[in-house]
């Protein structure tokens, strides 16, 4: 009788570090998936990440790869610069919805429109996390936030933006998909999508974006398991999972 280790902490996850994320935060799962993919592709020494502003601003403390911090929303612009001067490196951005879909909307649209050979991991949790639960561009209609305490009203606040669908209308970007980390079965698919997005860059195919539906138990005011249930029942009907664009 012998034992085989089937799961261990990823090597590109910083050793002996505990993240600052709230218990049950989807960021931890998404970070771990990115680490696992970097390990599997063997690109730990050739990867440069670009950190956003938001809860994930301190991602460079958790991932044992090179990292660069970008001003709020400007991660795709910084990544474009990095990839231009070091085309041999794998450059990716990790951004939240307050970063990518709000202040950084211009940068992401133009980076996608140029078909830059970068990978974008976009975490959509329908709220501003770090700053205290304000309404994000992706907040659902009727969802409460500190800046829309009665729930988001389309007449006042407009409609939640489906970033993936919008970017998929552009001709240049190659791979655009939406996944979630709500349950193990979705997490396995999410990892495949992230791996594909990195693989595309390794092969020089062009722009890849993976939108990850995630939770914010603290600002949603829910327990972690409840939060993921709410994600499945409320967010997934508005933000359907699937590939919106693919190279093939």
């Amino acid at each position: 009788m012998s034992e085989v280790k089937v799961y261990e902490r990823p090597k590109s996850w910083m050793p002996n570090v505990s993240s600052h994320y709230c218990p049950g935060c989807g960021h931890g799962i998404a970070h771990r998936l990115v680490c696992e993919v970097i390990d599997e592709l063997g690109i730990q020494n050739d990867t440069i990440g670009v950190a956003p502003v938001g809860c994930a601003a301190m991602i460079y403390d958790y991932m044992d790869t090179d990292y660069c911090e970008a001003p709020h929303g400007r991660a795709p612009a910084v990544a474009t610069g990095l990839k231009t001067v070091r085309p041999d490196k794998i450059v990716y951005t990790y951004q939240g919805d307050g970063d990518l879909a709000s202040i950084g909307m211009g940068e992401i649209v133009h980076a996608a429109n140029r078909g830059q050979n970068i990978t974008v991991i976009f975490i959509n949790n329908a709220i501003y996390g770090m700053t205290g639960g304000q309404m994000a561009p992706t907040t659902l209609l009727g969802q409460k936030a500190t800046t829309c305490p009665l729930g988001r009203d389309a007449k006042v606040n407009g409609y939640p933006i489906r970033v993936s669908e919008m970017l998929a209308t552009l001709p240049a970007p190659g791979y655009i998909t939406r996944v979630t980390v709500a349950q193990p079965k979705y997490i396995i698919k999410a990892k495949q999508a992230i791996k594909k997005a990195f693989q595309n860059q390794v092969e020089g195919k062009g722009f890849s974006l993976v939108e990850v539906l995630s939770s914010c138990p603290t600002n949603w005011g829910m327990r972690p398991v409840e939060a993921f249930d709410w994600l499945i029942s409320s967010m997934m009907p508005y933000y359907p999972l699937g590939d919106f664009k693919d190279f093939d």
């Binding site: 799961y7 990823p10 996850w13 993240s19 049950g24 989807g26 960021h27 931890g28 799962i29 193990p184």
Partner: peptide, 8 residues
């Protein structure tokens, strides 16, 4: 369990 753990 490990697949869903946010803190590895």
């Amino acid at each position: 369990c490990a697949t869903t753990c946010p803190d590895a």
